[in-house]
Computed example of a mutant assay.
Amino acid sequence: MGTTPTGIPGKSTSVNLLLGLLRPTRGTITLHGRGPDEAVRAGELGAMLQDAALIPELTVKELVDVVRRLYPRPLGLTEILELADLTELAGRRANKLFGGQSQRVRFALAIAGAPRILLLDEPTAAMDVESRLRFWAGTHDYAAGGRTVLFATHYLEEADEHSDRVIVIARSRLAADGTAAEIKAGAG
Rank of each mutant, 00 (worst) to 15 (best):
A39L: 00
I169N: 01
R134V: 00
E38W: 04
A47F: 04
T25Q: 11
R26D: 13
T6L: 14
D37M: 10
D160A: 13
V166M: 09
P74V: 01
I183G: 14
R104M: 06
L58N: 01
V105R: 05
E122M: 02
R116S: 14
A143H: 05
L133G: 07
T4L: 14
L156M: 15
P36A: 05
A94K: 01
T153Q: 09
L19I: 06
T78D: 15
L31V: 15
G145I: 00
A152N: 11
A185F: 06
L58D: 00
L18R: 09
Q50D: 08
A159E: 03
A53E: 11
L150S: 04
P5C: 07
I167V: 12
T148V: 10
L118N: 03
P5N: 02
I111S: 07
A39Y: 07
R34E: 09
G10N: 11
T13P: 10
R34M: 09
L118G: 02
W136D: 13
K61H: 14
K184W: 04
V166G: 00
G100S: 14
F151D: 03
G27I: 10
V66F: 14
G188H: 10
D128E: 11
V166N: 04
E38Y: 00
D37V: 06
A90L: 00
A125R: 00
L45E: 06
R73W: 03
R173I: 03
A112G: 09
T59P: 08
I80V: 11
E182S: 12
L81P: 07
E157Y: 08
L77G: 10
L81V: 03
R69K: 15
G10V: 01
K11S: 02
P74W: 02
P74R: 01
V67Y: 10
A185Q: 13
P56C: 13
I29S: 03
L97D: 12
T3N: 04
H162F: 14
P123A: 08
K61L: 14
L19K: 06
A144G: 09
A52K: 06
E161R: 15
H154Q: 15
E62I: 12
I167Y: 03
G76M: 01
G33W: 07
T179K: 13
P24A: 10
S131W: 03
K96D: 13
D128Q: 13
D177R: 05
M1Y: 08
T124C: 03
N95G: 00
E182K: 05
T30F: 09
L83C: 10
L54I: 08
A90W: 02
A47R: 05
N95K: 05
G76I: 00
A90V: 02
K11H: 00
A137T: 13
I183P: 05
D141A: 15
G186F: 10
R147C: 00
G100Q: 13
E122W: 01
Y71L: 01
T4D: 03
V129F: 14
R106N: 14
M127C: 05
A152D: 08
R173Q: 07
G7D: 13
L97K: 11
